[in-house]
């Protein structure tokens, strides 16, 4: 009888412990972004709005806690092991160690993970059987109308965020606004990696807006900006153009997407 009881207790304990672990690893909620047309910021003569099929997107950015699970399961992506061409020396520098965010960093367990490179973000999304969003997907999702918003416009809100310095402690995900798709913090918390961030052929000198060097431009024609007063978007595209895949930056993180089917 004692033997039976001890086994019963042990089993219950074991199950409970795993159940809790399961709760921490529970899958991130994804929302559906309905199909739409995305009007690119940089246009060429032949440009048309890009049709984006409906897709699922993480409702919020990937957090430090979630990324921790990834590096625990994938030692080659740990801070001390990672290859420099895939992540520069700032990779996860805000963490205590390879597999610890740190007790003193409790406040950021559920904040977006930052100081991660494009390659690391790519690998994480793949690990979750997802992908990084394309620019068209991300922009379509990010232009979703905010719900319960106190700002005059989304552009106002974005510019406001851009012109404020980074907070010392990055707030939790879901701490800014939610938009019509159910997505949180598409703007206002961090910059986010996109799959094809290295898309822009326009000269990095943004004043060179007239004729992109024809030599660099198979698709033909000049590249131009649709709305030069849209400073918020201008800053975001300029930011993307300065990135390299292994950069780890303290205000740059990501979220993943998945095809509907």
């Amino acid at each position: 009888m004692k033997y039976f009881l001890s086994i019963l207790i042990a089993t219950v304990f074991f199950c409970a412990a795993n159940a809790q672990k399961k709760a921490v690893l529970s899958e991130k909620k994804m929302v559906t972004v309905s199909s739409g047309n995305y009007k690119p910021f940089f246009v060429t003569k032949n440009n048309r709005p890009i049709y984006v099929a409906a897709f699922k997107m993480d409702e919020s950015a990937v957090t430090n806690a979630e990324f921790l699970q990834f590096v625990k399961a994938n030692p080659q992506w740990r801070r001390s092991k990672v290859n420099r061409i895939f992540a520069d020396t700032n990779y996860l520098r805000h963490w205590k160690s390879d597999v610890e965010i740190g007790e003193s960093n409790k406040k950021i367990y559920n904040s977006p993970v930052v100081n991660v490179s494009w390659f690391a973000a790519e690998a994480y999304c793949k690990w979750k059987n997802k992908k990084l969003p394309t620019i068209a997907q991300w922009e379509l999702a990010a232009n979703g109308a905010p719900k319960n918003f106190k700002y005059k416009s989304l552009t106002d809100f974005i510019l406001d965020w851009y012109t404020k310095p980074n907070p010392r402690i990055l707030p939790n995900v879901k701490s800014t606004y939610q938009n019509q798709y159910g997505l949180y913090d598409m703007n206002g918390l961090i910059w986010e990696w996109t799959f094809n961030f290295n898309s822009f052929i326009a000269s990095r000198d943004s004043r060179d807006k007239s004729e992109a060097d024809f030599k660099n431009f198979c698709a033909g024609g000049a590249i131009n900006v649709v709305d030069k007063t849209d400073y918020a978007t201008y800053l975001r595209f300029g930011y993307r153009a300065s990135l390299k895949g292994n950069y780890c930056i303290s205000s740059l993180g990501f979220r993943c997407v998945k095809d509907l089917k």
């Binding site: 700032n90 000269s203 990095r204 000198d205 300065s242 390299k244 950069y247 930056i249 303290s250 205000s251």
Partner: peptide, 8 residues
């Protein structure tokens, strides 16, 4: 053009 510098 030579100095487009991302944070860090």
């Amino acid at each position: 053009d030579a100095t487009s510098t991302a944070p860090g």
